[in-house]
C-alpha cells in the first residue's frame, strides 16, 4: 500500500522520523480593522455592484419581504430553510417553495425554478462576499442551481473581511461539511477573455441588506 511508502519517502527526504514534533506554525496576523456599520454597508454595496451584482438596502424585515415579493413576481422561486427568511415572511410568499429536506426533491426543484432565495451566515464587505454555511438552514444547491440568487442578510452579519471571518470562525469544519464564499455572479472568461456571466452558477446575484 502506497500510504506508508510515500510517508516513508517524505520522512527520509526531509530527515524526519515518524511522529517527530514540529516547530510552531509561523504566525499569521489577522487584522480586524475598526469599521463603522454604515461604512461596512456602503463598501459591501459598492463591491457587489462592481462585480455586476445588485445590492439593495431596506430598512426592515417587512421591506425585505416586499422587495423579494416584487423581484419574484411572475417567476418561480425556492427558498432555503433559513429561519431568517421565515421571520421576514419571505418563505410564505406565493410561488415560493421552501421547507425541502430531501436531497432528490431539492435538486429537482432547484433545477427548475428561476430564483433561489437564501440568507447568509456572514457577508464580507471588503470583497462583497456572501458566506454560506451548509446545515439545516442553508443548503448548497439553492444558491447554485437557479439562474438567479437573492440573499437576504441582516446588517449585523456584515464583517469587514476574511481576517474577521477566520477570527470568528477559526475552525469552520467543526460546524459544517461545506462553507462557500460567494463573490459576485458566476463568470467565465475562457473564450477570448470575454467576460460571460452565469456559466454554471447564478448569473444574477442580489444582496438585500436589512437594517
Amino acid at each position: 500500500m502506497s500510504r506508508d511508502n510515500i510517508l516513508h519517502k517524505v520522512r527520509t527526504a526531509l530527515g524526519r522520523s515518524a511522529g517527530q514534533a514540529v516547530a510552531d506554525v509561523p504566525p499569521v496576523r489577522l487584522r480586524v480593522p475598526e469599521a463603522a456599520m454604515e461604512d461596512r454597508i456602503a463598501l459591501m454595496r459598492s463591491r457587489v455592484e462592481a462585480l455586476a451584482g445588485k445590492a439593495v438596502r431596506v430598512p426592515t424585515m417587512d421591506a425585505a419581504c416586499e422587495f423579494v415579493a416584487a423581484a419574484i413576481a411572475g417567476k418561480t422561486a425556492v427558498a432555503s430553510n433559513a429561519p431568517y427568511l421565515e421571520e421576514c415572511g419571505i418563505a410564505r410568499l406565493p410561488g415560493v417553495r421552501t421547507g425541502i429536506r430531501e436531497v432528490g426533491e431539492l435538486t429537482a426543484v432547484c433545477a427548475q425554478v428561476d430564483i433561489g432565495i437564501t440568507s447568509a451566515d456572514y457577508a464580507l464587505s471588503d470583497t462583497g462576499t456572501l458566506v454560506m454555511i451548509a446545515g439545516p438552514a442553508e443548503s448548497r444547491l439553492v444558491s447554485l442551481l437557479p439562474p438567479a440568487h437573492i440573499a437576504v442578510v441582516p446588517r449585523e452579519r456584515i464583517l469587514t473581511g476574511l481576517d474577521e471571518l477566520f477570527t470568528i470562525l477559526p475552525n469552520p469544519a467543526a460546524q459544517t461539511s461545506s462553507m462557500v464564499l460567494i463573490t459576485g455572479p458566476s463568470r467565465t472568461a475562457d473564450i477570448e477573455q470575454i467576460l460571460v456571466r452565469g456559466v454554471h452558477g447564478p448569473g444574477q446575484v442580489t444582496v438585500v441588506i436589512v437594517g
Partner: peptide
C-alpha cells in the same frame, strides 16, 4: 480579482441535518 467568485471549503461528506452534498 479580490477573491474568485466561489471559494469552497469542504470537510467530509454531508452531515446529519444537512440537506444536500
Amino acid at each position: 480579482q479580490l477573491l474568485s467568485v466561489y471559494t469552497s471549503f469542504l470537510a467530509g461528506p454531508r452531515r446529519v441535518g444537512e440537506v444536500d452534498g
